[in-house]
Simulated assay, not measured.
Amino acid sequence: MAIYTKGGDKGTTSLFDGKRVSKDSLRVSTYGTFDELNANVSLAEKFCISDRNKQILQRIEYRMFFLQGEIASQDGEKFRSKSRIITDDDVHYLESIIDEYTTTLPKVNSFILPGSSLAGAQLHVCRTVCRRAERQLVSFMKVNPVRPEIERYVNRLSDFMYIMARSEDHEDYLEKVIEKVVQRYCKAIEG
Rank of each mutant, 00 (worst) to 15 (best):
S73N: 03
R152A: 14
F47Q: 05
R166Q: 12
E175I: 09
K187V: 09
E175P: 02
S116F: 03
S110M: 11
T33C: 11
R156S: 12
R156V: 03
G115E: 01
S81L: 11
L157T: 12
K187F: 07
T33H: 11
D169M: 10
N144L: 00
R80Q: 09
V143Y: 09
E95C: 05
R166W: 02
V182W: 03
F65Y: 13
L157N: 00
K142F: 04
V41I: 15
L26C: 05
S29W: 09
S42K: 09
L94N: 03
V181H: 12
L26F: 11
G18I: 00
I163S: 02
L174E: 13
I3H: 12
I97N: 02
I56G: 00
K10R: 14
E61A: 10
L43H: 04
D90L: 09
G191T: 14
G69H: 02
I85P: 00
D9F: 05
N38H: 06
R63N: 15
D159R: 14
N109W: 07
S81P: 08
Q183A: 13
F79K: 08
V138E: 03
I71K: 06
A121T: 10
D169R: 10
G32F: 05
R166E: 02
F111D: 08
E100C: 12
Y101S: 06
R166C: 08
R132D: 01
Y185M: 09
I97T: 08
S22P: 13
L157Y: 05
L94W: 00
E100L: 08
T128P: 07
S116N: 13
K23I: 01
G120H: 03
R63D: 04
S81F: 10
G69V: 09
I189L: 14
Q136Y: 13
D89V: 11
C48D: 02
A39Q: 02
V143G: 04
H124E: 03
Y101E: 14
Y185F: 15
T12S: 04
D159P: 06
F16S: 08
L105C: 03
N155Q: 10
E100W: 11
H92L: 10
A44E: 02
Q74V: 14
E175M: 12
T128S: 15
F66Q: 14
V41E: 00
F65A: 06
L37I: 09
I112A: 06
V108A: 08
G18Q: 04
G7M: 10
R20M: 08
H92I: 09
L37Y: 09
Q183I: 11
H124Q: 13
G115L: 15
V138K: 03
Q55W: 02
T128W: 01
V146M: 04
E151K: 13
F111H: 07
F16G: 04
M64C: 06
R27P: 05
L123Y: 03
L118F: 13
Q74T: 14
S117D: 08
I60M: 05
V108N: 04
D51A: 15
E61C: 11
Y93P: 06
L105D: 01
T30V: 14
V125N: 08
R132C: 06
A44P: 03
